[in-house]
């Protein structure tokens, strides 16, 4: 039974107010959003910060939902929110095909290299020139997350097996 305490302790150590592990759907997304919103409401969080956290959560969760089918066997992913004195951390991890790493890496590196005006220009360029994908995405999610955050997006790819890697993404929203 020790893992129960260990998990509890890990959550406390990382100031995690919410962790969800499993399948991701639009219904789950709505539930997770509602829980996080309630948590921020009950702690009296400022509405401008609440809105930014909510926005980043939506993009992060819907990314996972849209790309879950890229992975054949195990779609299970993780989503969590850390609440620290000076910031919220919106963190996700999901399996992706190894072949998708280069594209993601390039996209995220590019976003992280841009300043506020650069991100705005990229956003406007994408919204004008791209069509909604078959998966329903506009290709704007990461750009929007970076804009709401105002800081670089932290990411990593952890080897799982020959075919898949675990894509970890962390976005912070300042509470200052």
């Amino acid at each position: 039974m020790k893992y129960i305490f260990d998990l509890h302790q890990t959550m406390l150590d990382h100031s995690l107010i919410l962790v969800y592990e499993g399948e991701f759907t639009q219904e789950i997304t709505k539930s997770v959003l509602a829980m996080a919103e309630r948590n921020m409401d009950s702690s009296g969080e400022e509405s401008s910060i609440k809105r930014k956290v909510f926005n980043v959560m939506v993009e992060c969760l819907q990314n996972i939902v849209k790309h879950a089918d890229d992975v054949e066997e195990n779609h299970s992913a993780i989503f969590m929110i850390g609440k620290h004195e000076n910031e919220y951390l919106i963190v996700s991890g999901n399996p992706i095909l190894k072949g998708d790493i280069d594209g993601l890496n390039k996209k995220l590196e590019n976003i992280n290299s841009l300043d506020k005006d650069g991100l705005k220009a990229l956003y406007k360029d994408i919204i004008k020139n791209t069509q909604i994908s078959d998966k329903g995405g506009a290709g704007l999610g990461f750009v929007d997350m970076a804009r709401k955050s105002g800081r670089p997006l932290e990411f990593d790819f952890i080897d799982m097996d020959d075919k898949y890697s675990f894509f970890c993404l962390k976005t912070s929203i300042s509470r200052a």
Binding site: F54, N55, E59, I127, G137
Partner: peptide, 12 residues
């Protein structure tokens, strides 16, 4: 109050 990025494309 909120819109996601996929909606922003459709709002345009």
């Amino acid at each position: 109050e909120y819109f996601n990025t996929a909606s922003s494309k459709l709002i345009l």
